[in-house]
Design a protein around this nucleic acid. Structure first.
Lengths: 173, 173
DNA sequence: TCTCAATGGTTGAGAATCTCAATTGTCGAG
DNA sequence: CTCGACAATTGAGATTCTCAACCATTGAGA
């Protein structure tokens, strides 16, 4: 009921050791989390498998699509994009080269620091991104086949879940 | 295995046109599906981002990890793996070369057809796969932070959702 | 039986993606 | 002003990917 943010793992086990019943209950909850995670993970795998196909609809590689998604908000330095993509900075250079070559992205100099280059979408880039995001917002068959009641539950629970992630990118637009 | 992806949209609208009320209800349900999908998609993006890191824990590339996951059941021909990975057959050759080079996978000749080579995990491969799967079954913080009631709902709804996928790989083990 | 199109896998060319190490230009603290 | 830190780039080398061409085998039909 009170779904306070609860950093699990060690802390949970430490508390659990204080009482046999509590320990049992917590282990049950952990098991429950695994059970809930399993089908979710199935869906994720399926989506991961399809993502390259989806990106190809826009003649983008998976990484390019991901990058485009991340560049939707305000201009970001290359290093920030590298962070979002969890990859080396040197990787981003070539990636941006190709996106820039296609006229989807622009490098601009930051006035406060001449080392950094800010990435922003061009008009064309914004348009492609808009269509891409729209396409990605289409729920897959597995989801849209659920009943209204199920959808409502799913929505509410998942909203509460992602709230706890700190929500690095997803609200605007 | 043709175009399952786009089914719902058009068909829903076609049915909707038959009745004003029904149309409204269906549009509402579609909107609901989008609302439920959005936070789910957030989570998926986050997991996709983390997957390479997770695979690296086992010194595997993302594709290798995915392949290992798919090879858990019975021996499969290379073409089947290509299908699971949604990639060209020629791609699988090199991939399997490297996995075989590491002693995780074996090519065996199928007796019923001398063209096909069946892929099976070695002992070492099974062990790595076991640990990999165990690691992937750990729910992320966003999920395990939910309450028991929420987890139960999520589990039940998601189980019903993935049932409709035909479940190509996920039960055994 | 012989032929031949289709199939499973491999090879080679070429592009994109990735990491690591080294480089260049810039910033900021001592 | 100097020096370590930082942003981005470059270059080498590995992996992943697609496409086209290829080889061996299969299965079916003349």
């Amino acid at each position: 009921m009170k779904g306070m943010s609860r950093t699990q793992g060690d802390r949970v086990e430490a508390r659990a050791r204080k009482s046999g019943e509590a320990a049992e209950s917590l282990r049950a909850e952990e098991e429950l989390a695994r059970e809930a995670w399993a089908p979710l993970f199935e869906l994720i795998q399926e989506q991961m498998r399809q993502f390259p196909v989806l990106a190809a609809e826009f003649e983008l590689s998976p990484v390019q699509a991901h990058a485009l998604r991340m560049l939707g908000y305000e201009p970001q330095p290359m290093s920030a994009l590298a962070g979002h993509l969890s990859c080396d900075a040197s990787n981003v250079t070539g990636l941006v080269d190709r996106l820039e070559g296609r006229g989807l992205v622009e490098r601009r100099n930051a006035e406060h620091d001449r080392r950094v280059k800010l990435l922003c979408l061009t008009e064309a880039g914004q348009e492609v991104r808009r269509r891409l995001m729209e396409r990605m917002a289409e729920p897959p068959a597995a989801i849209s086949a659920l009943s209204s009641a199920e959808l409502r539950m799913l929505r509410d629970v998942m909203r509460r879940a992602v709230e706890k992630l700190g929500a690095p990118g997803g609200k605007p637009d």
